[in-house]
Design a protein around this nucleic acid. Structure first.
Lengths: 201, 201
DNA sequence: TTGACTACTGCACATTTGTGCAGTAGGCTG
DNA sequence: CAGCCTACTGCACAAATGTGCAGTAGTCAA
């Protein structure tokens, strides 16, 4: 569907696979675009979007512009207990560390927590899953957030309606939490969920 | 002094500076070698030494061979289309590649597919998720497997009861498939699901 | 002195590759 | 129905680039 994005990812993949960017004709070949200008049409768009950069008249002169200097992977700490206030990365709280592709954990300060309970099964998030979280004090309505309620970590979907802020579980067995009524004292939103990871073994 | 080594380092530097390997003439320029064959002479040596690899007739087809596998992560190809038979890692089928921690993708031949449809929502696997798969012709009963049914990739839970082998979707809207009755002709089990990954952005 | 070996030069040539310009089918909007 | 936009096709062309073949100056060893 999103041809432009597909081409962008293809270029990225080729660079990491072959060590050099593809030529216009190689891209055309991959996407069945017989004319070099069909491809150039998209490359221009990608360049306008600031996603790639092109070197004039240079063979394979396509460069991916990464705002995050994508190292091969980001080490992400999995926090066990998250005590009062902000998550602490001190040794005794880090249960494990996994190396995640930058496409799965972009941004700074990213951490992960293990999901406890089944309050989000409706969204396909199960007990034991690992939630990769990006610190974000002001998540958008509809996002899945990680919140600290009375020293307990929970995932909820955040809904903002005018003044009201609601944390909604995706499981009818659990009640909604109205932040506006409860007051924010005991509830702290840590960030929004970037990625869910589940192991089957 | 060590011209060969200097050229090797120049190639390395150019790749990290510009994002693509230099051409023969660019190398010649840098080292005041007026003939392209002066450069080729050294490239051949570097290739004999196993320090670089060259792609035939490809512009800038020089690749640095790094014996140090850098990171703990494994590059896992995400296959787009999986045509008849076994999954093919040929260029046109690889949609993207992600680097996964070895704890998420252990074993050899691991690949990933994008989940289509909602036949496994009951197990918390949604449309669009990425399933990391370990090739495994004989999965255990109860495992979630990736199967190729009539050239279509699907996830199902495999149930073995005595002689019967059943592929069961985790969604009441879909029927069970009894492998024993259907015959294995049109159904091929590719492997078992190691990990599910879901991006939220 | 010869002969090998290293490190190139020089040139022609075929491909590969980027660029320019013109045109067009299909969908959508007014 | 015209006009615009998107996503291309088609072709020519020049520049960039890899390859092949022949030759050579300098060094070093026998």
């Amino acid at each position: 569907m999103d041809r432009k994005g597909q081409i962008y990812r293809y270029i990225k993949t080729e660079i990491s696979r072959k060590g050099l960017p593809p030529t216009i004709r190689e891209i055309g070949n991959r996407f069945n675009i017989s004319s070099t200008n069909g491809v150039r049409y998209f490359l221009n768009k990608l360049e306008d979007d600031g996603l790639i950069e092109r070197q004039n008249r240079m063979a394979r002169g396509i460069r991916i512009i990464d705002r995050v200097p994508a190292s091969t992977g980001t080490p992400v700490p999995i926090l066990g207990r998250v005590p009062a206030g902000k998550p602490s990365f001190s040794e005794e709280n880090v249960e494990d560390t996994i190396l995640l592709d930058s496409s799965l954990a972009k941004g700074s300060g990213v951490f992960a927590v293990r999901v406890h309970g089944d309050s989000m099964v409706g969204a396909g998030i199960n007990d034991g899953d690992i939630a990769v979280v990006k610190p974000n004090p002001l998540p958008q309505s509809g996002e899945i957030v990680v919140a600290l309620i009375e020293d307990e970590v929970t995932l909820k979907r955040i809904i903002k309606k005018g003044r009201e802020v609601i944390l909604r579980p995706e499981n009818d067995d659990y009640p909604e939490l109205n932040l506006t009524k409860l007051g924010h004292d005991r509830i702290r939103i840590l960030g929004s969920v970037l990625t869910i990871i589940r192991r089957f073994y």
